[in-house]
């Protein structure tokens, strides 16, 4: 417990951590200020006009659906050349649409929380992932580099205990900061929506989807912290983690992707970590690969494939687990000079 207390103080006292928290606060303040400045509570007339526009849009969709049904029934001919008529008119049925046009879609300069929440949350997750990776790497990297770990081991000779406590403290602090900042962040924008904009439709489905993104984002943030910590431990320096990520991005994600495409390797996206990141964060990604289609062109649905969050999580956990395991194994036997 003493070690956890000391590590907690050591971590939170680090300037880099404080700087990153400050940056988060600044980014948060700027986003809040610009949102507030760019939004207003819609007047009754603005609201009425938007409702009219939304009703017109719904009516147009219904008319198109009806027209499709009439063409299929042979009641009316196709008038325009090249007019698209789907094989199944259900595609155009407004009743089957996930979301019908709403009045809030036609309000300009009005912040609608339900429209913006997902984007705002993704921005926050991206920042927290960066924060977690950098803090994780610099926390152990600086300690290894400055001799802090050696000093600590003179007091607590259990290497795995010391490293494990450091990692545990890091994960705990990052999780706590993520939860707090997310609550503050979303809470602030929800309040803006209530007072200086519109909340939009906040039904159970909305909160469920937002919660899923939030949960997956939080897992990603923690994995990033462990990954940064693990790579820096293996490389004995903060820059090892940054270098590894930069090298991976340039060599594999850019360079090898190009090579794989040139030599026509099937489904090269499956070999890229970014694919699994995207699949995990958004729930699934749909990809297309021309190798699955017959030569000669034309419409081909056979090239479509999907990667869902489950295999994505497996890949991310396996990678992070392997790096963390290697870091602990190396640190256990390493000569600390």
């Amino acid at each position: 417990m003493n070690l956890v207390r000391a590590e907690l103080e050591r971590l939170t006292a680090r300037r880099f951590v404080q700087l990153m928290v400050l940056l988060l606060a600044v980014a948060f303040a700027v986003t809040t200020a610009t949102t507030l400045l760019g939004s207003h509570r819609p007047t009754t007339s603005e609201m009425s006009a938007a409702q009219t526009q939304a009703a017109r849009a719904v009516a147009a969709m219904e008319a198109e659906h009806t027209r499709c049904l009439q063409i299929k029934a042979g009641e009316i001919p196709i008038i325009k050349d090249g007019e698209y008529v789907p094989a199944d008119c259900a595609e155009l049925d407004p009743a089957r649409m996930a979301q019908l046009p709403l009045a809030t879609d036609y309000l300009s300069s009005v912040f609608v929380f339900s429209h913006e929440a997902r984007g705002l949350l993704y921005f926050l997750i991206a920042f927290l992932v960066l924060f977690a990776f950098l803090v994780g790497a610099s926390y152990i990297g600086a300690d290894l580099n400055s001799g802090g770990v050696v000093n600590l081991l003179l007091w607590r000779p259990g290497r795995l205990t010391v490293l494990g406590t450091k990692l545990g403290t890091l994960v705990g602090v990052v999780a706590a900061l993520s939860v707090l900042s997310s609550a503050l962040y979303l809470g602030t924008f929800w309040t803006i929506g209530q007072t200086a904009g519109l909340p939009g439709p906040l039904d159970g489905e909305f909160w469920g989807q937002l919660g899923a993104i939030y949960g997956r984002g939080l897992v990603l943030v923690l994995l990033a912290a462990v990954l940064g910590f693990g790579i820096a431990t293996l490389g004995r320096h903060t820059s090892a983690a940054l270098g590894a990520v930069a090298a991976y991005a340039v060599v594999w994600e850019v360079g090898c992707r190009l090579v794989l495409q040139i030599i026509d390797v099937a489904r090269p996206d499956q070999l890229m970590l970014s694919t699994y990141l995207g699949a995990w964060l958004s729930g699934k990604v749909e990809l297309w690969d021309g190798n699955g289609c017959p030569p000669g062109g034309g419409v081909c649905d056979g090239g479509l494939y999907t990667i869902t969050w489950a295999p994505a999580l497996l890949v991310l956990l396996a990678l992070t687990g392997a790096v963390a395991g290697a870091a602990f194994a190396a640190f256990r036997r390493r000569d600390l000079l």
Binding site: N2, R5, R10, A13, G147, G148, V150, N151, L152, R156
Partner: peptide, 28 residues
């Protein structure tokens, strides 16, 4: 056992007092 080995390094941004206090806390 108290020990120092070969010009020990400390985290530069911490004060001397804080450095020792953290070690004291970690070591009980």
């Amino acid at each position: 056992v108290g020990a120092i080995v070969e010009s020990p390094q400390f985290f530069g941004n911490f004060t001397g007092h804080r450095t020792l206090r953290l070690l004291a806390v970690a070591g009980g």
